[in-house]
Design a protein around this nucleic acid. Sequence first.
DNA 1: TTGTATGCGTTATCAC
DNA 2: GTGATAACGCATACAA
Lengths: 343, 343
Amino acid sequence: MNSITIKDIARICGVGVSTVSRAINNHPDINKETKDYILSVIEEYNYIPNNSARNLKRIETNAIAVLVKGITNPFFTDMIKIMEQEIEKRKYSLVLHHVEFNENEIDVALELIKEKRLRGIVFLGGHFSHSEDKLKKIPVPFVLSTIGGIVDENNRDGYSSVSVNDIHESKKIVDYLLDQGHKKIAIICADAEDESISSLRLEGYYQALRNHNIEPDESWVFRMQREFEEYSIENGYNVALDILKSNEEFTALYAISDMLAMGACKALIDHGKKVPDDYSIVGFDGIKLGQYYNPSITTLVQPVEKIASETIRLLFEVFENDKKHKHLTFEGILAIRESTKVL
Amino acid sequence: MNSITIKDIARICGVGVSTVSRAINNHPDINKETKDYILSVIEEYNYIPNNSARNLKRIETNAIAVLVKGITNPFFTDMIKIMEQEIEKRKYSLVLHHVEFNENEIDVALELIKEKRLRGIVFLGGHFSHSEDKLKKIPVPFVLSTIGGIVDENNRDGYSSVSVNDIHESKKIVDYLLDQGHKKIAIICADAEDESISSLRLEGYYQALRNHNIEPDESWVFRMQREFEEYSIENGYNVALDILKSNEEFTALYAISDMLAMGACKALIDHGKKVPDDYSIVGFDGIKLGQYYNPSITTLVQPVEKIASETIRLLFEVFENDKKHKHLTFEGILAIRESTKVL
DNA sequence: TTGTATGCGTTATCAC
DNA sequence: GTGATAACGCATACAA
């Protein structure tokens, strides 16, 4: 287990360690022949540089980290891919790091910054209801991507953010249902304590109803269940079961994620209801899965490519061109599919 | 960006660096009061130890890495959770690392072993058609989890593996369809070059047909499409479109993953077919999503909890108790749901 | 163009 | 219990 080091390679090649280092790191001032020879020896002996030592020594790397809370969320998959492309395009490298649900993303970030000498960070997912104090501790530029949770409009100079306007898009969805003649619209969202996208989408729901002179009824508001994973399909299923039990009258159901919507859909169908004939169902996000569900799910499609590429662009503008942090919002697109119909 | 180090903390506290180190690492021989004081200073100054330096210095950590190719695959989600529990139970820590599709998992492993001084590795996902030569280079014990791709029965002493018997389980599925009266059974699998689980499941399909005196017809074998992500729902959708175009006669469709099965299902339904009335569809894996699809997908459920916990158990037996590597297979369970019916 | 020496931040090994 | 000090493996300033 005593593995080979740069010194061993230097000794074998009969050169100094700095020459080996130059060969590895594509330094310009090195004789091509010695370089080729060294590289061949490295190949032969399967030498692999120790990243810990490199990180420790290097003043600054060209690495950007993307911290994802809920990495299995299909909504993030495409975003990550695009971010990766954008980062590579700029000759930087991406460190993809997964944050557990019970971990604090800022602590993880702080640790990673030290360990890898990061230049910037992207936060993806999670609630992110952190104090400004804590945010200030992050010593590199960072961007919140599709995290709508920061309600505090002040003190946002320390970071950038890119997302849709959750209230606005949520209104679009409910407006559409209202236009189709639905008046009794139930909603599935997160806990009342949730300060994140859920509360924004719920707010949009309220506003849309009020704009149509319908007073929102709390008995139409259903919450995800703690026993199941947040925003998961089984959570949607079980909430919908409760809705049916409640005997609450409604004709349309708005779930604040596509996964929830699909689960709810299945629960209704399992109980002999027809979608969209008996109930119209809409989701939020626009994940691919929703297109292939049966029925395909009407949803608010977030412009993931745009959000992802702008996230990276903003980040680079801050630390390369010294620009100020910005907060961008993009328009989503209502995709009308099979799960909804006119009442 | 000049961040605080252990030396700074030592100076502030008026103690030596080794005392600070002892405080951080819960060393036994340190005065409780000095320890508490040091920790309070650390807290106050937001000191975070540099992991690169720690990894560099430490002889051996208690870290196990799980390398996942295709981390967004929902099939792996539960497995990872269980592995995490099992690893923590043994007072080790889990390093979850994502491998890109175009990356070589062994190279990634080799690098990570050096960087983090890993004690062992779990490989999850991917094809893993690597030469024995390359596998031998991995200097720590490792386990292949649910990777059926190693056909070479010899030379398997260097590692462990845990999975279902893909041929056997595949036969179960096809046997079931045959028992239901289906004789014309199409299959969706990977490229012909694929040496991985796909070829094993295809082999099981062949064997089951032959056992029932049905000569497999190559025109019933359909392949995933290169343009789309492997094993994805959209791939299944597009393959099924081709199947319909081919006008090949069949009554049942076996897709070697649940995702493929769901996509295929949607394609058929979009073309006015009924599932299971016109076609029976089965998948493989037993992911939760399949239960909530409409219709829910008949599938071969892999015992993920068992596979995950045994993977970790084997790994620890090798490097803690010095036992020999083993190759375990577990039985899957055929879950009959709504997407199939008797012909 | 190349080699030597220093230090990155930490832990381990000693002395005290 | 505690504090110097020597590594860990590498990149780099500087000397050659």
